[in-house]
Design a protein around this nucleic acid. Sequence first.
DNA 1: CTCTTGACTGGTT
DNA 2: GAACCAGCCAAGA
Length: 111
Amino acid sequence: MTSDFYTNIFDVVRLIPTGRATSYGAIAKYLGAAKSSRVVGWAMNQSHTLKDKIPAHRVVNRLGMLSGKMHFETPNTMKERLESEGIKVKKDQIKNWKTVFWDPNIELDFD
DNA sequence: CTCTTGACTGGTT
DNA sequence: GAACCAGCCAAGA
């Protein structure tokens, strides 16, 4: 079912370990839709309407920038939560992005 | 049904 | 290296 795509997105986001973060493209690629990264972002937009809130703050663009911070309760919520998990954020951009980057394609691996 | 917009990405210029 | 262009898919007007 097509709905699984959204379900998978939320599922992967929930699997993101604390103190880590990933990108929309990484999730999309893991789901086999690398070109549908925009849909991942759209899914995040829908996430706030879900009963089970997901750690969308752990999902940023490929540059590690808090591109969707403005969609949270407040533009500061995303940064606050990330720093609360030990992720350093400088000027809306995650520091040591390469280090905190959690790639489902590698961490979860393909079965 | 058509057109626009968007929490993206990769390739060109 | 910044700016611009094209591709992809879903939702809202």
